[in-house]
Structures are given as C-alpha cells and as structure tokens.
Design a protein around this nucleic acid. Structure first.
Lengths: 228, 228
DNA sequence: CCAAAAGTGTTCTCGATACACCCATGT
DNA sequence: ACATGGGTGTATCGAGAACACTTTTGG
C-alpha cells in the first residue's frame, strides 16, 4: 500500500513525511505596450526567470500568488488566474509548480519594482519557464476569443482602435477593422461613453469602457485565426 | 519578505518548513454503461468519496495518480489527464488538491476492486468531490467536441451506432444520426474494418476502430450543443 | 412479409470573411 | 485643400442543423 487513504476533506492527510511536496509558485505577468506583448522577468545569472516564490502553508495559494504579484508590480489592478500545475523532478524529490497568468493594463506607466519587461519571445529563460510562458500565451490568446479578458489589458477608457491594437498585439495577427468592430459591438461588452477623444488632425474617436455588468460568462465568438 | 526566492529549477526550494504543502490526489474515473455515465466511488461514512491518496514526494504526481487508479480498477487501459489544482483549507494549514480525470472503456465488464460505479449525478459526495466531479464532466463534454477522447470510452471494435450512443450518454443529449456520421467520418478518426457485426434480425453494422495514427492534435468540429 | 436497426443526401440558416470608400478634424 | 485616422455596409462561402426514406437481415 503506497497511499495513506484519508477519509474526507475534514480529515486531511496527517502531517507526516508523505504527501508534503515542495510547492513553487510562478507568475507570468503580461502586458501590452507599443505593439509588443511583454512579460515581467527577473535577472537570474546570465539569463532571466519568472517571478516566483515558495508560499507558506498557512495561506491559500492564490493569496501567495497575489502577494508575489505585489512584489513584482506596484500596480494593484491585476487579473490573476491559475494556469497549470506542473510536476518537476530535482534528483530525488518531486516538486509541484503552480503557474499563474496575470494581466495588467497597458499604458505609458508600467510600474515594476525589481522586474523588467521583456518580449514574451525573449531568449534567456530556463526550459520550464519557457514552457510556462508559452502556455500562458496560448491560454491568453484562446481566452481573448471567447471572453472579455482583454478588459484587463486596457485602461479605463479607450477607443476601438486602441482595443483592436491590443488584440492584434496579443494575437500577433492583423484583424479587419470592420469585422472587429461589428463583433465587439455585437458582443455587448462595451459601453460607449458620451465623450470623444481628439488627438490629432483627424476625426475624433468615440471613447468606450467595458460594461460594468458584463457577464463574465458572456462569450465572444472564437476563431479569429486565418483572418490575416 | 514572505517568499524565499530560489534561483532556478536546478536549484529548487530548500526543504525547510515553508513551501511544503500537503498534497492530495483525487481521481474522477468515468465510464459509460447501458446509457449511464458512471463514476467510481468509495464508501465514506454514510456517503461516498472519490478515490484519493497522498502521494510520496519521491514520485511524480502522474505516477501517483496512475497507481491510485490501479488500486481502483483492474483494467489497465486507461486514459488519465490532470484536471485542476484546488487549494483548500483545513483550520490552519492549506493543502493542495490535484484532481485527475480518468476514462475506461465501456463494456459488460467494468472491473473495480473496492469501488462502486455510481451515476455521476448521485447524491452523497462531499462538497469538494462534487465540484471536482462536475468539473470533470464539463471537461469531458467539451473535449468530446474537439478531440478523439471518446476513443477511451470505447472497446477496440465498435459500430457507429455504439459510438453515437456513447456520445449521447456522455453529453446527455440526443444527436442526429446523419449529422453525427458525416462529421465522425469527415474527421478521419475512424478506420472501417472489413467485417460487419450481425446481432439480430436486421441489417448488419460495419465495424470500426479508432485510427492508430490518429493525430492527438486532430480536432473534431466543436459545438454540438443545441442540436437536440 | 414483417420487424428492426443500418445506412444515406439535400436544403436552409447563420456566422465568418473579404473588401473600399466617406467622414470629421487640424493645420 | 490636404493629410490623418475614425467610421461604416454588402456579397460570398462554409459549417451546423433539420429532416425521411431505403436497405439488409432474421424470423
């Protein structure tokens, strides 16, 4: 018998040698800036690594991840989502690596503490970090198609062109302006503000914000692949 | 500073008091039989619980899950997939609950050891187990739409009607025979065997098997919702 | 010849795509 | 008046859904 079976949630595994795994939390903190999809990285020897930490067993992992995030960026309005749990080996012991995807709004101010923004395709990450980043990007791209997650990459108020640019950067794909607008409007996720933004010698742009009561289960139509 | 930062995968968290979480593995083992979607359960007090175990830190979690599976069923051809990692609290300490989805082929022989097959909607599970089961079913249904996962619920050789019945049971939804056949055939996931099966006073059915070289990344068209 | 399950095609609708011009403003 | 980015509509195509009859066998 290899397992010590416990009986219920109210009666969890005894704190013996078994079942106590090292847990390592890593965050893929992503933003968009000037047409680039960026990830927060910390220097590590001659390369880079994702922000990471070993949580205390006295706090929930999501709280640990959020704390880690607050050590990485000063900005407090972030989206945080558990990504995937890896299981990795180091000699004898296996440890559990729980990865999170975090998003913060693009903008001229991208406040980091000791981390640096790197292109998401940058060289210099370890093999595992690279996998985690790549998976985070896959997930982000998929979710852009059928959720309103893009909201977290945008400032409070924005124009449709700015929103489209964020999608294009995140998806690494050009989108058709008319189709993009038709779908975004049809999805009902945006609320037009009365105001317009004048920022040059051209027609001013309508400003929008994400609708407060946007149902998080509301779906945008997927499959923008193959458009450009 | 709440986290002890480590530098790389090759230099994992030190085995100190921090970062050692209790880890609990649970398996949602699912099969289909006689039009019912079943889950393997163990008795627990006056109710039921999922097969579970506390893995040793000296083995990968997937191996622990597979071992657990082998304690639950004698059948060895199973599909196993990591589902989701929950983080649950018991008084002071938090523990990490890693859930797996496993599938075994339907058939007259559904060999279990100490477990019992219950309807997936059965009462008597704890709150957490209920969540895990429900999520497993959601994932299974989604994956039936765009992968060849159904393969693991079928015996080696089967007819199109049997395959459709498995889909219908798993999805809890009636499907149109002609549309079903057109899509399954078009997906290329099946290989017709030369033989036919005669099992009654009616036209014999062509036998199929899943194509050996079926690309696991090959996708069936999704979205069968709303068909019936 | 009857019962029972296997097998097969066409039509319609709707969402996804491709595509080009006019509008409002600042200089 | 012209340069700049904002804003709009239509035609085509393909996938998904709805739908009913013929075929083959055993008894």
């Amino acid at each position: 018998m290899v397992f010590s079976h416990d009986t219920s949630i109210a009666n969890p595994p005894a704190p013996d040698q078994n079942g106590r795994f090292s847990v390592d939390v890593r965050i893929v903190l992503v933003t968009v800036s000037e047409g680039r999809l960026l990830v927060a990285a910390l220097p590590s020897g001659d390369g880079w690594q994702l922000p990471r930490g070993v949580p205390l067993p006295t706090m929930p992992l999501d709280a640990a991840a959020r704390l880690l995030l607050s050590e990485t960026t000063e900005l407090h309005e972030q989206y945080l989502e558990q990504l995937y749990t890896l299981n990795t080996n180091d000699g004898e012991a296996w440890f559990v690596l729980i990865s999170y995807l975090a998003l913060i709004a693009s903008g001229p101010d991208l406040p980091l503490t000791s981390a640096t923004w790197l292109d998401t395709t940058a060289e210099g990450f370890g093999e595992v970090d690279r996998m985690v980043i790549d998976y985070a990007i896959v997930r982000l791209r998929a979710k852009l198609g059928y959720t309103t997650i893009a909201f977290h990459l945008m400032p409070e108020r924005f124009t449709l062109t700015e929103l489209q640019e964020t999608y294009e950067t995140a998806l690494a794909m050009q989108l058709d302006k008319r189709n993009f607008r038709r779908r975004i409007i049809a999805s009902g996720m945006l609320e037009p503000l009365g105001e317009k933004r004048r920022d040059g010698s051209h027609r001013p742009a309508q400003l929008y914000r994400f609708r407060a009561g946007h149902d998080p289960a509301s779906f945008l139509t997927p499959q923008w692949a193959g458009e450009a």
